[in-house]
Design a protein around this nucleic acid. Structure first.
Lengths: 237, 237
DNA sequence: AGGCGTCTGTGCGCTAGACCACATATATGA
DNA sequence: TCATATATGTGGTCTAGCGCACAGACGCCT
C-alpha cells in the first residue's frame, strides 16, 4: 500500500459522496488517498485495524481461510462500501481476512476519527449502518448460493458483482484466485469459464478476463445476484 | 403469537440483562412478554416490522427461500440476541424470513421505542451493534460451511448451536425441518442423523431429538461451530 | 533464442449428495 | 380399534464436483 496525497478531486466512494457538505468538510482533512496492489492483505484474521478504507476503484474481498488452507469468500467491497466495519460495530477485530482482489485506490481514515464521527450519530453513522446491512444481505446470499447453485452460476455472480464495482470491462484475475474466492477447485473454474467463453459471454487469456456480453452473464446467473444488487440499490442508491 | 404480560421475573435475554440499571428501567415499561409457537413466522421476506423481539427461551431461524422453493438458513437467534436488526440498522425491511425453530418466549419492544433508545447512543446501541457483528460472523461461517463441509458436520453444528440456546437436552424438530434449515434433502438428514444415533451422540423419535453425548457432537463438528461460539463469547460474554 | 515459471486445458476415477420410489413406523383422532 | 396423516428408513440411479496426473500454452527474463 502506498500513501499518495490528500484527495482534491471529486470523491469516488459512494458512501462519502452521500455525506452532507458540512460532515464531508469535517472529514476531508482526515482522508488520505492510498493505492492497493493486487493480492495485498488489508487485514488478517483477528488482526487489529488502525484505519478504515473507502475503496474508490479498488475491490477488496472478505474471505475466510479454514485450518486446512481451504478458503471461501463471504463478500466483496468496492466503491459503494467500507472495509473495516468492526471499528464502528464495536468488535475491534474481525474473524476473517480482507484481500485486494482488484488493484486500485482507496481513501483511508484513522480509526479514532471514524469512531468519533460515528458517535455523533449523524448521516455518517446512518450511511455506515445501512452499508453494513447491505453487506449482511450479500453475505447471506453467498451462504445460500454456496449451498444451492452450480459453480458456473456462482462464477457469473462473482463476475457481475466485480464488474459493477470497477470501471473497466477487463478484470485482472487468474482462475486460480477465483477458485479461492468461490471455494472451489481451479479446474472447476476452468470448465465453467470455458463454457462462458464458448457462449461468447467472456474472453480471457492468462489472468485477463474481458466481459464481452454482460447480458449473457445475467441470463446465466442465479437470482442471488439480483437480490444483492437490488438491496444495495435500495439501501444506498 | 400470544401476548402474556409485562415481565417481572429476572430478564432471561442476555442483551437486556447486560444493560445498566437506568437504561433497563427506562425500557422495562415498553417490554411485553410474548409466546412463540413452533413454525410461526416472525417476519416475511421484505415485510415491515412493528416490533423487535428479544428471545428468552425460544429460537428463531433466519432463512432465505429461493424462487423455486428451496431454502437455507443463514443464522439463528436465541436468548443472546435480537430479531429484527433492520429496525436499528436503518433498512426497515430485511430480505429474508424469520421462523420460530423452537417454541418459547420472547420480549418484544415497539420499533419507535427501540429506535429512540438506539439514537441515544448508550450501552443499548453498543450492545445491539456488537450483537450484529456476532451475527455477521455466524452468517459468514454458514457461507463457508455450506461450501466446504459435509452434511453430517453441518448437522452437528446446527445441533450444538441450538443446544447452546435452549435449556433442555431435547429439541422438538423433525428431520424434514432440519433439512430445510440446512438446505439439504430430508433423506440426507436421515442418513446423517442415523450415524449420530448409532454412535450414541443423539437419540430421536418422530420429531424429538435428545442430545445424549454432547462431547461426541463436538468431536464430529467442523471448526465453524467453535469460531462462531468464540466470537459470540468474545463480543457478548 | 532459449528456458523456466505460471496459467490453462483435459481426462479419469471417485464420492457425496440429489432425485425418485417405496416400505415401515408412530401419533392422533374418529 | 381403526384410519389416516406424518415421520423415518432404505435402496437404486444419476450427476456435479473433487483429487490427481499431466499436457500444452503463453509471458518473462537472461
Amino acid at each position: 500500500m502506498t500513501v499518495i496525497a490528500r484527495p482534491n478531486e471529486p470523491v469516488e466512494n459512494r458512501l462519502l459522496a452521500a455525506l452532507p457538505e458540512d460532515e464531508y468538510a469535517r472529514l476531508l482533512p482526515s482522508l488520505q488517498q492510498v493505492s492497493f496492489s493486487l493480492g495485498e492483505v488489508v487485514y488478517e484474521f483477528g488482526g487489529h485495524l488502525d484505519y478504515v478504507f473507502f475503496p474508490t476503484n479498488s475491490i477488496v474481498s472478505l474471505l475466510y481461510t479454514m485450518e486446512n488452507g481451504a478458503s471461501a469468500e463471504m463478500g466483496l467491497t468496492g466503491n459503494d462500501g467500507v472495509v473495516g466495519i468492526a471499528l464502528f460495530m464495536g468488535g475491534g477485530t474481525m474473524p476473517n481476512r480482507a484481500v485486494v482482489q482488484s488493484a486500485g485506490g482507496a481513501l483511508r481514515m484513522k480509526a479514532k476519527v471514524l469512531q468519533d464521527e460515528f458517535a455523533r450519530g449523524g448521516k455518517f453513522q446512518y450511511l455506515l449502518l445501512r452499508y453494513t446491512q447491505a453487506l449482511i444481505t450479500q453475505i447471506s446470499q453467498t451462504a445460500v448460493c454456496n449451498r444451492l447453485h452450480s459453480v458456473e452460476q456462482q462464477l457469473c455472480r462473482w463476475l457481475l458483482l466485480s464488474h459493477d464495482r470497477v470501471k473497466a470491462d477487463e478484470l485482472i484475475m487468474t482462475q486460480e484466485l477465483i477458485a479461492d474466492m468461490l471455494g472451489v477447485r481451479r479446474e472447476g473454474v476452468t470448465v465453467a469459464a470455458g463454457r462462458l467463453q464458448d457462449s461468447g459471454a467472456i474472453g480471457y487469456v492468462r489472468g485477463h478476463i474481458k466481459i464481452l456480453d454482460r447480458q449473457k452473464l445475467e441470463d446465466t446467473v442465479c437470482e442471488c445476484y439480483r437480490v444483492v444488487k437490488d438491496e444495495f440499490d435500495r439501501l444506498l442508491g
